[in-house]
């Protein structure tokens, strides 16, 4: 989630592809599309990783469309019930939905950027409570028991974005540690 040069998360987030539509012919760059064409034709649509898309978009070679994980359909689903959307399923490779969204922010103009930022922040905040709740629940169960949970909570856990997963771990560990201390008896003192 950070901009650090060495951050694997940042690299992975930039590795997501977005669809770009070229505004002009570009000779000798057909290999970007992975096809056998020698040139990129005007108006052709190519999936380009974000890290390369910056240059193309800022130097006005191409336009881009809002990628799948952030379409209106997903936005509406998030608006309806943030905890029911499987964020990890929307983006491949580690499921960095927030990371992807944040990188995308840089490409958007002010108006769309604000909307996107609000979407990301609102989703994060509304899901956070459920993340922490479940983490504490699992900490209370202890390491050994698997625990029974119903389908909704299970499916929520499977859909956690990598950032949320990290938070889940933090909350679980901290809660487990505090619990262990509360339960430790007087034996240790003698």
């Amino acid at each position: 989630m950070d901009d650090d040069y060495y951050s694997i998360d940042a690299i992975l987030a930039e590795n997501q592809k977005i669809q770009c539509k070229f505004k002009q012919d570009i000779p000798d760059m057909g290999h970007l599309d992975g096809g056998s064409e020698r040139d990129i034709k005007r108006d052709s649509k190519v999936q380009i990783p974000l890290w390369m898309a910056y240059v193309l978009i800022f130097s006005n070679f191409a336009d881009f469309t809002i990628p799948g994980p952030f379409t209106t359909r997903v936005q509406n689903a998030l608006k309806a019930e943030p905890t029911s959307v499987k964020l990890a399923g929307l983006v491949g490779a580690g499921g960095l939905w927030y990371g992807f969204g944040r990188v995308l922010l840089r490409l958007l103009d002010d108006e769309h950027g604000d909307l996107m930022s609000a979407l990301l922040a609102r989703t994060f905040r509304q899901r956070l409570l459920e993340v922490v709740d479940q983490a504490q629940h699992f900490a209370a169960l202890g390491r050994a028991s698997g625990g029974h949970s119903n389908d909704a909570t299970q499916s929520f856990r499977e859909g956690l974005d990598a950032t949320e997963r990290e938070l889940f771990g933090l909350a679980q560990e901290s809660s487990r540690r505090t619990k262990r201390w509360y339960e430790s008896g007087e034996k240790g003192r003698k």
């Binding site: 604000d114 905040r125 983490a135 950032t163 909350a171 901290s174």
Partner: peptide
């Protein structure tokens, strides 16, 4: 731990 991390993430998400 998770309040700090959560606030960190929010800071990054807010434009």
């Amino acid at each position: 731990p998770f309040f700090i991390k959560g606030m960190n993430v929010l800071t990054k998400l807010i434009r």
